[in-house]
Design a protein around this nucleic acid. Sequence first.
DNA 1: CCAAAACCTGCTCACATGAGCAAAACACCC
DNA 2: GGGTGTTTTGCTCATGTGAGCAGGTTTTGG
Lengths: 314, 314
Amino acid sequence: MSDSDELLSIRAAELYYDEDKTQDEVGQILGLTRWKVGRLLAQAKEKGYIRIEIVHPRARKLGLERELRDAFGLADAIVVPVSGAKNDAEIRDRVAQGAADYLTALRPVPRTLGISWGRTLDDVAAKLTDGWATRVSVVQINGGVTLNQRAGTAAATAVSIAKKASGDATLLPSPAILERLETKKSIEGDRMVAQVLGMAAEASAYLYSAGVAGPDSAHVHSGYLTTENVRELVRRGAVGDVVGRYIDANGMIVDPSLDERTLGLSLDQLRAAPTSIAVIAGLAKQAVARAMVSSGLCTVLVTDEETARAVLNP
Amino acid sequence: MSDSDELLSIRAAELYYDEDKTQDEVGQILGLTRWKVGRLLAQAKEKGYIRIEIVHPRARKLGLERELRDAFGLADAIVVPVSGAKNDAEIRDRVAQGAADYLTALRPVPRTLGISWGRTLDDVAAKLTDGWATRVSVVQINGGVTLNQRAGTAAATAVSIAKKASGDATLLPSPAILERLETKKSIEGDRMVAQVLGMAAEASAYLYSAGVAGPDSAHVHSGYLTTENVRELVRRGAVGDVVGRYIDANGMIVDPSLDERTLGLSLDQLRAAPTSIAVIAGLAKQAVARAMVSSGLCTVLVTDEETARAVLNP
DNA sequence: CCAAAACCTGCTCACATGAGCAAAACACCC
DNA sequence: GGGTGTTTTGCTCATGTGAGCAGGTTTTGG
């Protein structure tokens, strides 16, 4: 296309889109036939000079969603925009809303939903509306925070999600990480715990988030790991944890002996699930998001635009 | 509109604009009639959820242009977008291009064009193409930079603009500001200078920019004023200079005695001109832009989006 | 509880638009 | 310079879309 045609196409686009003129009117103003105007507009669109953005906190980025699905063979992807968000909290909020919307619309409705815990899951629980589903059993899939001041939030998340669906919550009464392998084995052997784990293993869908491997990790706050432990994990390549298990950029377990002492669903069980929904929001979680998606940990990814881009173009 | 309708309108907009579906297809996907979809889209547009932007360095902001024309009774306004510009230099570049385009398209073609000098005018001169007009006489309207190392650039601007229009340039052989009033009067009395000033006064159009009142002013660099002089002018309310004359926020001369010693077209002559094109680019010049426009110094303003907004909403 | 008003819905019709096509204009090569 | 292939142009026609309207539904106020 000649240079003057390019300029003309911009002028035409201004009159057509900004001034709401018809192509005919634009043609009269610029001294062109209406067909020429139509072609110029088509060229401007094709060259990407016309950008149409949907500005709404609950808007989605269907283009990125498709790219994610295609690139990683995901069953689905939900990507929310970041434009207009003032801070990380607002982005997390939008992602949580997106996850809640997705869960509400999910068909078939899961009979049993396995969930992890954490701030992200709390947010999703808060966004779910009463009656988002009916009679859904919620089961925890990894050991919870039970031994510190935040006690009960993990349980509260599960109960809240279940209650809003007129279902009941089954809690996993165990620490996330045990100090000794034998302790873990014996807890696993407990009839009650084994029953919960069995239920978790057969859940029809999973909903979980991931943590960043760093001094701010929930495991550190909860006292399961020391700052030094986490530093060592990072040294060995850890990018974050999924249901309590630390993975590297390839989605591999970083420390098998630590992993053996971690109670809950295994990553392979998660990978085998037909529906596992990962909810990941915020700038800090891009590395772990990529590790999860590329190693097939989830079939559905709910995230923000920037994380989506980072996952696609590492 | 109900909350769910709002969400629906967003979903519809996504399918319609991002996925290029027809309203009918959107309707089938969302389970709505195509008329409902059309209404939802109209609502989304009306509520401003659909933002259409033309992304091109030579695009213009017709909405802001109209606002400027209406608010200040301008004959015309050219506003270029800032989005996508990496720095101030790129914005200046776009504004210069806009001014060059405007000048090229200006009808009737001015027989005599009065110009000031400065970096902005240099940029505009560089953007003008050979043959932008034919046989236009260019005349300087204020005293030039002749006594320092940058000697000749003011002349070069004028010559360049004239040459590209197969016309000739008439230079004003005088300093911008004289130390003593008598000197100024005697230079003004010089036959040659008087002739140039007469020609300048009768130019059919003016093209000029403005400077910021600050230590970086061209007058300081050229040695006409000291940093101290400028500081004093600022203290007395100066926001910048137009054709060498310092004005305050209301467009009034700040220091009449200084102004008397400034050689060139007076501001009142400029205000009386039927076509005077002000070219103002960059974040620093918003105050002086507003002063100029609101005091009627120009009939045409060429500027960038941000300055335009600043002028409209001070 | 009912009437009036406001609103929403599905429709017809007129207009706006993009696809496809023949003719014209242009570029190119021998 | 003339023939050939390619691009551009102006058009017809089918489809997409918005305005306006009648009938139905919900809301509001007595």
